[in-house]
Nucleic acid binder design. Structure first.
Lengths: 200, 200
DNA sequence: GAAGCGTTTAACGCTTTAGTCAAACTATTT
DNA sequence: AAATAGTTTGACTAAAGCGTTAAACGCTTC
């Protein structure tokens, strides 16, 4: 973790790029080495095995947005107050790397046993979060909607448009990436508005 | 297409199951054969190659929800009227096979050149759909929100909770699959309500 | 029951891939 | 400049995977 050699960084960069795009099984060590412009065996030198390299990439990816989620679930502040900032950072993260969501979801979906372990490591306590949500529901929400549904709506609105980028880009924005990005940035305002409406 | 032998059906069933779960590269022909309880070579006999088998599975998957989308985008009826039925069928489809969304999104994401071709085959005309949306926006939407954003919201709310099933199940529903399914069914009512609110 | 058809099987060849290892190389320290 | 620790390289091994092929099997038809 601490400091990384230049080659180590190049490896991670290429591994991220390719794993995000083609998945673990779809990417060979050779592919990564070629992309990084270094000898294939160096991957083994620095990361021991493909599994461990993948693990490093996956954890880094998780680390990009789990903390945001965790902060919201555990803080003393209400969801409502958290929403604008959360939406902003999540959308910014996704704009920088749209493929990260599918990458993470795909891995979690094909290897479901990981979830509990990861929750622990990342410091999310489902029981605590649920209790907090329940209390909030009683206090704040007038519409009577389950607070889990509220969370689900929020996250869905933030992430899905990126997970489905190729489809959205093609059908709704006619392949114009500029327009797509502009639209995604607009959502930083749209989503909080929508959530406010939903919570009042 | 027309009629399929029993073995052919078994192959498709196992291929769907495994491709959905592990992806194309993560699934071997042997895996599929074993799962189906038949000799590996039969896959080649019936589908020629792994590529062609995958193609069959992928197209079948696309065929499950593209028609719904296409119908909405092209019909003379307004979105509002379409929403309840669309939400109902989409959610039902997803409950039956939650992994299908990631499977499709992953494939489209790692192989983006496919989109235009598929749109054509599936009979979606982006230009026409956009024009229709624009007209509707002028007529119906008072909030002034871009109709593309409206569509995006609708689809996000419907599909994402399934794409993220492992996470949602674990964090929000504590691993209780029953509760998760109930919640997803509730969304058949929640989402149309929300959209109505959004469009008035 | 022999011929002929589609189906199923096992064996083979070939390519790709992950990982190891010892040798070569580099740079820093003594 | 010799020694040493840390990197980089190419060659090798073993395993996994895809596709082909020829033989075996089973079932209908003549």
């Amino acid at each position: 973790m601490a400091l990384q050699t230049e080659t180590e960084e190049k490896i991670i960069a290429s591994a991220e790029k390719l794993f995000y795009q083609k998945g673990k099984a779809g990417t060979s060590m050779q592919d990564i080495g070629d992309d990084a412009g270094i000898n294939r065996t160096l991957l083994n030198y620095y990361f021991r095995s493909k599994d461990q390299l993948f693990e490093a990439v996956f954890r880094k990816a998780m680390g990009r947005f789990v903390p945001n989620l965790a902060a919201m679930l555990h803080s003393d502040i209400s969801f409502e107050e958290y929403i604008p900032a959360l939406v902003e950072t999540v959308i910014d993260t996704m704009i920088e790397n749209p493929q990260i969501s599918i990458f993470v979801l795909q891995e979690l979906s094909s290897n479901q046993d990981r979830m509990p372990q990861i929750m622990k490591e990342m410091g999310i306590n489902p029981a605590f979060a649920l209790k907090k949500m329940e209390e909030e529901r009683v206090i704040k929400v007038t519409g009577g909607m389950d607070s889990r549904q509220v969370i689900l709506n929020l996250i869905s609105l933030c992430i899905f448009p990126f997970a489905a980028k190729p489809v959205v880009l093609d059908i709704l924005y006619n392949g114009d990436n500029e327009a797509y990005i502009v639209a995604m940035k607009e959502r930083k305002k749209i989503i909080p508005q929508l959530m406010k409406q939903l919570l009042s």
